[in-house]
């Protein structure tokens, strides 16, 4: 059951990663000309259309992560400590705190993305970039730790 939840957690994280990356690129480097390349199409997305989905995906991914966290605490963290993998352990500690801080930012993120485009542009852009950093950090750390420990039969 934990393996199923872990895979679902990872799949939700992939969707969240894609959405927030598109939004961040769209809000920081918007395309000024018609999109005619892969990169230009990424830059020309409408960032505001992602906000609702990102809030839902963030909460769903964090909730699934919280559900499988006890298994990590019992089966993975202890092994990391025994293997003296302090950097891996510390990276996960940062991940849990960053994700928690991201949850606290979601109401503001949601509110500012619902405002007219001309208002709060800088606040929206920075909130989005900060959430993108948290999501990327969480994704990479989770992926690396899973590679270290692997699945149990």
């Amino acid at each position: 059951m934990i393996v199923v939840l872990l895979i679902a957690h990872a799949l939700l994280a992939v969707a969240l990663l894609g959405a927030i990356t598109h939004q961040t690129i769209g809000v920081w480097t918007p395309a000024k000309q018609p999109a005619d390349s892969f990169v230009a199409r990424m830059r020309s997305v409408s960032p505001s259309t992602y906000a609702g989905a990102i809030v839902v995906l963030y909460i769903a991914t964090a909730t699934l992560g919280a559900i499988i966290y006890p298994s990590y605490r019992l089966n993975v963290r202890i092994v990391l400590e025994q293997m003296q993998l302090a950097k891996a352990n510390g990276s996960f500690e940062l991940k849990e705190h960053f994700v928690a801080l991201g949850l606290g930012m979601l109401p503001a993120y949601w509110y500012f993305w619902r405002q007219p485009p001309a208002d709060y542009a800088r606040t929206r852009a920075v909130l989005t970039a900060l959430l993108a950093f948290i999501v990327w950090w969480g994704f990479i750390v989770g992926h690396v730790l899973n590679n270290i420990r692997g699945f149990e039969a």
């Binding site: 991201g102 930012m105 500012f112 800088r122 606040t123 900060l130």
Partner: peptide
């Protein structure tokens, strides 16, 4: 200032980097 919504969490993220530095520099 609307920037408090990101400036304070960002500062706290830096604080966590400091609090947990022992994992990375020992």
């Amino acid at each position: 200032w609307p920037g408090w919504s990101w400036a304070v969490p960002l500062a706290v993220m830096v604080v966590f980097g400091y609090i947990l530095r022992g994992y990375f520099i020992r």
